[in-house]
Design a protein around this nucleic acid. Structure first.
Lengths: 207, 207, 207, 207
DNA sequence: TATGAATGAGTCTTCATTCAT
DNA sequence: GATGAATGAAGACTCATTCAT
């Protein structure tokens, strides 16, 4: 994705454990923002954790905000890919919805730090970056809603509830996961995923 | 809750529009914390909006954190009261659950600023205050869970899903409301409330 | 100018040698900006020289720029007063022009630090403050120009040169003083003043 | 002055619009220093405007200061040449003084950016470079003063004013030009030049 | 000759809080 | 009860310069 490109010029970037400075910075930021919040984390904290100087950080990221922005972009990219894959599966719509919910719960838990940051810190993103994230997010929402509408058209989903609201209802549960789910707790990711998917599908299914 | 206490002594607190300084401070803090976040709001911002001097604020509230804490306490008090009322109603359990969900959605929307702050800023609350809030919150959660368990015992709710997870599932949707619900949007509070309640109850009902 | 005002509230400002913090800050800034330039002087330098903490400085001045701005306002106020006084004198116009030049040279030398800063740092003032200074400066320029025009109308000054340019010519010499005049040099303020005034008046006088 | 040197070795320097990297750097620096000040311009700004990398800049100029220094040297070289030419003319002294003033005004306006920088940024030049500039500057001043003294000896210039002060008086006006002269203004370079020269010569002429 | 990574000291500013009155 | 002065630690960010290639 970024490798051969003939000969490189300038001093080559230093790596630690095969990770370049910007990668380490993003890793550190992810962990710290999730733990202490965006405002609660200083740039100093991030560079210290990444083993990088402040100047180097500003060489790669124009501002602290861009660090956060990049974290958002990563998550959005992954979520979109996953959902697109599920939607394209050759299965009855109810099963695709079920699979989509299972997948989003599992990946949310697998990336619980990103998820923690996502809704807690959205308002701290710079105006313009915030708009971009909301746009991407909306696209994701629409894809899922189309699935629900498809089910309603087929008659397998009830149509006395707005598909729009049903999507918000479902995703609300998922996005709230970071507020209570703990790795040490009793419910495994799979268990939560199955439960949520079951409850949602049972809720919108026609009787 | 704090008022009548027989005779008063000393100079009565100055009021503006019938609201005392601490009330105005809380109002201002609520609005600003919801709009700009806790860290994004300075004490200066709050006192300016409340029309009070900084010294006066520190006279009433030991710290900025206590302003936030008091906002949490207000919400918790109200939610608890509401839920207790619903639980005590003389209705079939499924209807009480439905009513409880309707109520929590409606009051969340009526107090959308508090709701915005609730989950976004919990981690910014001082350790000890945070624990207290979580305790209260847990109590609320347990009360609702008891209702679900009651339904499972009666056989009206399926018991192949954990009551615990079902409650998290339901409340997740509700707590996420501030992330997308807008007064100007198309869905009224009542519509959202009914939809969420229907979906939840249909989801956990036995077939 | 600022004294009695009944009773004061709040902690009274601390003074050193009878000078309050803002006064000391302005004194220090004047000296340092003249010596090392505006950009070459850090806020740290200023507060150290003034014996004040950084926080205190920002209590009185919203920014480093405002420190500079206040220095400009002081100079402008003084220059305007002086010129107005001279213009109002009951003397032939040539003598008033002569007196005005003498006065502006003398006060420029007496306030050589302000004068040093004036033209060297104008471009560093914030946009808005810069505009205000230019406006005031223009008013001063116009007052002097009116005097020259008056002389031209009376026939004592030649009218083959634009009054506008004559004023720029004269003031240029004066404003450039800080670039070369030194207290230890041979020319006293009075000597310079008389020379400049003589040369200017002789230059515009009709033959 | 720096070019022909017989044979060249190695790769010839890349040019853009026929200008080499160091030339483009100097052009860019001139424009930016005049517009935003020396401190207000970062090395990054300069190299970006010149279309050159930072490393390349440091290849040609040991420091940012040297960029400024080179700008000073260019101006000084030109001014000296011009004055020497005028002084050597075969004309009455008063006419040579008049011509010198006209020339310095015209070239100052033609090189208004250099002139803007000259006095505003002198104090920002490194100690040693500053001394060199002042030395050159002094030589220029002396040449002009000699002309005035010559006029006084001949009796065409009054000797009740110090030649030294007269020179400062005259040059002050000229050096202050960048503070007010604008290309879009009403006064052309020639008009200003003639006016200043007339006023100066009339001022020092014997009656 | 030129690149782009990396440095590290330094910049202005903010802010919750305390203090003297 | 209330004021406004004062604190001091911390914040994000800039920048001239050096280094390895």
């Amino acid at each position: 994705m970024s490798a051969p490109e003939g000969r490189r010029r300038g001093r080559p970037p230093a790596t630690v454990n095969g990770r370049t400075a910007p990668e380490r910075l993003l890793d550190a930021a992810l962990e710290l923002f999730a733990e202490k919040g965006f405002d609660g984390t200083s740039v100093q904290d991030v560079v210290r954790a990444a083993g990088v100087t402040k100047g180097a950080m500003y060489h790669y990221f124009p501002s602290k905000d861009d660090l956060l922005h990049e974290i958002y972009l990563r998550v959005l990219r992954m979520q979109t890919e996953h959902l697109d894959t599920v939607v394209a599966m050759d299965l009855p719509v109810a099963e695709r919805v079920h699979a989509a919910v299972v997948d989003v719960v599992v990946t949310t838990i697998e990336n619980i730090q990103s998820a923690t940051i996502f809704f807690r810190s959205l308002h701290q993103l710079a105006e313009e970056n915030q708009r971009q994230v909301r746009r991407e997010r909306r696209r994701y929402h629409e894809t899922f809603r189309a699935l629900v509408v498809e089910g309603q058209r087929e008659g397998v989903f009830r149509d006395d509830v707005s598909a729009e609201l049903a999507v918000d209802y479902c995703f609300g549960s998922v996005h709230h996961l970071p507020m209570w789910w703990r790795a040490e707790g009793d419910a495994s990711a799979d268990e939560v995923a199955r439960t949520f998917a079951d409850l949602f599908v049972a809720g919108i299914a026609t009787r």
